[in-house]
Amino acid sequence: MSFVEIAAGIISKNSLVMSFAIVAITMFVGYRLSGLLGERRFGSALAIVIGLVLALIAGKYTGGSKGIADIKILSGFGVLGGAMFRDYAIISTAFGANIEELKKAGVAGIVSLFVGVIFSFIVGAAFALAFGFKSAVDVTTIGAGAVTFIVGPVTGGALGASSAVVALSIAAGVVKSVLCMIITPLVAPYIGLNNPQSAMVFGGLLGTTSGVAGGLAATDPKLVPYGAMTATFYTGLGCLLAPSVLFMIVRAILGS
């Protein structure tokens, strides 16, 4: 037995611990790079981008859908980066959030949720039409995918869309989530994303939980709880509206 095999065996057995180590290195590299660029605040943004690049490389290499968690010795990433820890950590960020700030943005937050879901749906549906999709089911499913990558398949499932269309809707949602993580810190200064109120509106408009959480974390961690709070209602609202009201409207317009 070679040293490599022994090491691989130990790491596989303790893959969650391994994921702590790799994430620590990623954070270190991210902050070092941002220090070299003279923009220390981009440290977490760079770490997130490095994470995405690792996921891309791993996805090409393994052909799987779970990024580097598909590599056996790194399977602990599936736990550390999975929905359970993500939600647990997002909830913890609410500690210390100010009730008055929440109340101030309450109405704007709710309005932004409806505007966000309907607006993304319309954009997605319009591109589906532009690319030659004609049935109301297909157009609705792709539109729902532009809402989030959960709303797309839920809607497609409810309406009986083909698996190719469902896959497209998931891809649209994943594009949204990934782009949101990358672009948010870059555009934040230009859209006034620097206070709890606008963060709540942002969460309601973009809605992709991982995209909003990642984007805000890279912009200003203090804003995370406000954006995440509205964003968590977005997917639910999308799952509610897309297969029902929005589908009926699309069907009425397309007549099929």
Binding site: S19, F20, V23, A24, T26, M27, G30, S44, A47, I48, V49, I50, G51, L52, L54, A55, A58, G59, S65, K66, G67, I68, A69, F77, G78, L80, G81, G82, F85, R86, A89, I90, S92, T93, V174, S177, V178, M181, S210, A213, G214, A217, P221, V224
Partner: peptide, 13 residues
């Protein structure tokens, strides 16, 4: 929270 988000990013499709 941020390290967890980094791990999440690394597991995206």
């Amino acid at each position: 929270y941020i390290p967890i988000i980094v791990a999440m990013a690394a597991t995206q499709d």
